[in-house]
Each structure stands twice: as structure tokens, then as C-alpha cells.
């Protein structure tokens, strides 16, 4: 029982919507969702990770988000994590993600 991912692409922004459980099983889907928008000359693109429908995340999801950040250009990356429910918000805070991502 894992989640599903849908992607909306606009001119300079990629929105990745994650529903259900965001765990290890999602790694191929998640990578596929951003891979074509990262690397090479694609830097400077904005990513929005919409956790509105996300029920659960574990450490592998945190690892995936860190990898996305790296592949999107680490410090030049512009990644926003939105609509996380309170439990997930707490996990993000405990992991100190507010220093690396914009959390709203």
C-alpha cells in the first residue's frame, strides 16, 4: 500500500503532488517526477512538493527530498514543501528541513 504521485508542469515551476504514504516504494515514481527537470542547463527551476494528500513520511522520503535538492543545484535550488499535516510538519522540523527548504 503505497502512495501515488502526480506532476503539474508550468513554465518555470514543477509541482509534485504526493498522495498516501511517501516511503521507499515511491522512489522510482518520485525520481521520475523531477528527473527531466533537473541537471544540466535546467538549474533555477522552482519545485513545489505538495504534501496535501500525504498521510505518512519516513526517513527514506526525507532522503529523497535531500537528493532532489542536490540534483536541483543544492544552495541555488528553490524548493518549497507545502500543505504538510501537523505530524509531518513536526518531522520536517525535527529533521531541520526549514534550513534547507521553504516550508509553508
Amino acid at each position: 500500500m503505497s502512495g501515488t504521485i502526480s506532476v503539474t508542469r508550468e513554465e518555470s515551476e514543477t509541482v509534485i503532488n504526493i498522495k498516501g504514504r511517501f516511503n521507499f516504494e515511491m522512489h522510482s515514481q518520485f525520481r521520475a517526477a523531477y528527473q527531466e527537470d533537473t541537471g544540466g542547463d535546467k538549474k533555477g527551476r522552482r519545485f513545489v512538493i505538495n504534501l496535501a494528500g500525504t498521510e505518512y513520511i519516513d526517513s527514506s522520503a526525507l532522503g529523497m527530498l535531500l537528493l532532489l535538492r542536490e540534483e536541483a543545484g543544492t544552495n541555488e535550488s528553490d524548493i518549497e514543501i507545502t500543505n504538510a499535516r501537523p505530524e509531518i510538519q513536526k518531522i520536517l522540523e525535527t529533521a531541520n528541513f526549514q534550513r534547507l527548504f521553504k516550508i509553508s
Binding site: 522512489h27 526517513s59 527514506s60 526525507l62 532522503g63 529523497m64 537528493l67 529533521a95 531541520n96
Partner: peptide, 23 residues
């Protein structure tokens, strides 16, 4: 505790990178 959490997340990050390679 912070160090421990950081460590776990680092391991997860490395593991996910490894999984990409394995894929």
C-alpha cells in the same frame, strides 16, 4: 538526539542514491 536524527537522514539519503544506482 539532533546528531542521531541527522545521521539517520544522511543514511537514508545515501541509501536513496544507492537505490538509484542499483535501479
Amino acid at each position: 538526539l539532533r546528531t542521531f536524527v541527522d545521521h539517520i537522514i544522511l543514511v537514508s539519503r545515501q541509501s536513496m542514491e544507492m537505490v538509484h544506482r542499483v535501479d
